[in-house]
């Protein structure tokens, strides 16, 4: 029973964090751009939401404001990379570091509690209770997570099917070709970074409201969690190729990651060990497919050798 409850919490967290993973998927996989902005823009999302809510702005509006704040974070990385010609990894790290100070400025302190305020989670919970449907906080979070994940996937699916979206996907494949087809690759990268970091800040906003607090340190390691979700999804759903299914795979990866974490915590490890465990999961998930294909290649060679000696 204890564990089932933990799984519910894990699914809720997995869904909310999967929006961050989807944002990372856009830059890391579609655009082929190693965007290190993530840790900063995620925190920005949570901080902006916390400040908005603490100042009486409706939670739904706070979500939107956070999303716009995240788009600025992406724009800064894009500017540093495109206009100042700073290498992509460093451009992201610079934005991430500066966001630490900016987030502190936004909140005016390192931590903002939200327990005494309304969030969309509390609002929905009360709304449902009003019509006689008493749900646990985790189940409400699962509902909200499902709604937002669906919206994000549908919007991204639509956008990356449009002319602009298609040329962004092509940029991740072959920049020289995109320029030869008359498109400024600086613009395509800029747009992708903005969209990705908007998603990531949206995730930060949701996670902050769910946890009932925003903290300037809450984004540390978020990028690795996003990567963990992506690679777990890819390992488990290895055969999917369509863009929509790949996004669903990322979401499933995010949920599985959270279930693994819940399991590990049940086994008695502390939350302080999580970063190490996450790194190990990513390393394993990246190593396993290679190991499997090497193993298969070896099998194929052995088979060929046997057939040769038989002949």
């Amino acid at each position: 029973m204890q564990f089932l409850l933990a799984v519910e919490g894990a699914v809720a967290q997995g869904l909310l964090w999967s929006i961050l993973a989807l944002g990372s998927y856009l830059t890391f996989r579609l655009l082929n751009f190693t965007d290190m902005t993530v840790d900063g823009s995620f925190t920005t999302g949570a901080c902006v939401t916390a400040v908005c809510i603490a100042n009486g702005i409706p939670p739904a509006l706070a979500l939107l404001v956070s999303l716009v704040a995240g788009s600025f974070a992406g724009a800064i990385t894009g500017f540093l990379h495109n206009k100042l010609e700073i290498p992509e990894v460093l451009a992201g790290i610079l934005t991430q570091i500066s966001l630490y100070s900016i987030n502190l400025r936004i909140m005016g302190r390192a931590n903002q509690q939200l327990l005494q305020y309304d969030t969309i989670f509390k609002q929905l919970k009360n709304l449902l209770a009003g019509i006689g449907l008493e749900l646990s906080s985790d189940r409400v979070a699962i509902l909200i997570g499902l709604v937002f994940v669906t919206i994000v996937i549908v919007v991204l699916y639509w956008f990356f099917g449009t002319e602009i979206g298609s040329i962004i996907r092509a940029t991740g494949n072959n920049e020289a070709m995109v320029r030869a087809l008359g498109q400024n690759t600086q613009n395509t990268k800029f747009i992708a970074l903005i969209i990705a970091n908007s998603c990531i800040a949206l995730a930060g906003s949701l996670v902050g409201m769910y946890q009932g607090a925003a903290d300037v340190g809450m984004g540390a390691g978020a990028i690795v969690i996003g990567l963990a979700s992506i690679v777990i999804g890819e390992v488990i759903l290895r055969r999917v190729i369509a863009f929509g299914s790949k996004m669903v795979a990322v979401v499933i990866g995010s949920i599985i990651y959270r279930i693994i974490v819940a399991l590990v915590l049940q086994l008695g490890l502390s939350t302080n060990d999580l970063k190490l465990i996450t790194a190990i999961i990513v390393a394993l998930a990246l190593f396993l497919p290679n190991a499997v294909s090497k193993h298969n290649a070896k099998k194929a060679r052995e088979l060929a050798a046997r057939e040769n000696s038989d002949a």
Binding site: R169, M177, L181
Partner: peptide, 30 residues
């Protein structure tokens, strides 16, 4: 390898080229 986007469909590649030099908007890519 230089003229095409390997991870995209043949039709998608042609659609990208069909719009060479044109302003790309939010209408469907193909």
């Amino acid at each position: 390898l230089m003229g095409t986007a390997a991870n995209m469909q043949l039709a998608e590649n042609l659609a990208l080229a069909f719009r060479r030099g044109k302003r790309r908007g939010l209408s469907w890519g193909i």
